[in-house]
Write a protein that binds this DNA or RNA. Structure first.
Lengths: 193, 193
DNA sequence: CCAATTCTTGACTAAACGGTCAAGTATGGA
DNA sequence: TCCATACTTGACCGTTTAGTCAAGAATTGG
């Protein structure tokens, strides 16, 4: 029919996501993207209609991948408190470079504020699913009397989600892995009865 | 001696800080600054040497003002837990527009990451002083057996500082005042013995 | 083999950016 | 009064930006 595409669109999207993650939306230029992907501007325009659409696709990809990793990592944990700790560990990045980039969702959330509805929908999808996983563990913990019932599981889940967001920010601003991990362990420890 | 300056440098710095706070560093252009201040570009260059220097001065001003307000608001509170709650209330902004801008320090921290040493020094100065105020209240609370001693005052202070940072992010991303306030109240409540 | 279709390429555009320059202007001390 | 000094003004510079255009190239169904 027509000339076949010479690049792997999924791979290129992945690479673009990495650039956005490292540099942010505004600070990423088409030159950055073409240099990294080796795909010319007009070809990117052919698949993704513009920079913003490409960024939205990047957010969706990030969300899917991160949630998949998160759910896999906590699948084995049966004890509620251990599962909460696993969630906290899972959101921390291992290598120094990944940590300094912070979390793409958090970065996007702060870069766009509350102005862009599409961006915020992507962010909300990720936050809501994470919150669900947390709340589930908390409900079980409360049922087993391992976690305080002074406050509702919903309130406690929002509390822990907030602490995790703070931790992701700490990572980006240069805190050591141990510092960040310590804050999260404290946040979980305070939930115990 | 020489021709006197026609504008109030302090007022102009204040106005520039407001623009940076609303738009961020990168997204703020000299046109934004001159439109707001009614001061021409070259005159701004005369007082502040360039955009980055102007931003650094803005951060310092923000820090001074916010810490002054914070210290004033908690001065009256003698009960440690009430003082912690006052700290949490003080970091929340009242009107909707101010809330949507988030915290200039947090915004800057995420926009610059850990790359710019001068920027990070400004941010650290603010964070350290806030942390001191929190830790002081926690130590008193522990002495009075109102706050748990299972963890050190230092660890708990970092924990609460982190929760506050998360709350500031929530504000910017459009959460309602009540939601944010609720998360912080939970964070303080969990400190109680 | 050819033609419809899509992809690739590099040149191009118009606007915006941070920053500089030079010429004009107001001030107070000598 | 005059002059050194610092401020004001608008034009200017080179660079970078997101996005467009048009011409050429590769593919496969007919």
């Amino acid at each position: 029919m027509s000339r076949p595409r010479e690049f792997d669109a999924d791979l290129v999207l992945h690479q673009c996501m990495d650039v956005f993650w490292t540099k942010g939306f505004q600070a990423t230029s088409y030159e950055d993207l073409t240099r990294t992907t080796q795909v010319k501007k007009q070809s990117l325009y052919g698949v993704f209609k513009n920079k913003r659409a490409l960024f939205l696709k990047s957010l969706a990809l990030y969300r899917q991948e991160n949630l998949a990793v998160l759910e896999a990592k906590i699948a084995g944990e049966t004890l509620p408190l251990r599962r909460l700790e696993a969630i906290c560990e899972a959101v921390l990045y291992s290598d120094e470079d990944a940590r300094r980039r912070g979390c793409l969702m958090i970065n996007a959330s702060l870069e766009f504020g509350s102005e862009d509805a599409d961006i915020n929908r992507e962010i909300a999808l990720m936050a809501e699913r994470t919150q669900e996983l947390i709340e589930e563990a908390i409900r079980e913990g409360q049922a087993q009397n391992a976690i305080t019932s002074r406050l509702s599981s919903h309130e406690l889940a929002r509390y822990l989600g907030n602490a995790i967001n703070g931790a992701k920010m700490m990572e980006k601003s240069g805190a050591s892995r141990e510092e960040v991990s310590s804050v999260l362990r404290t946040s979980v420890a305070l939930l115990e009865t």
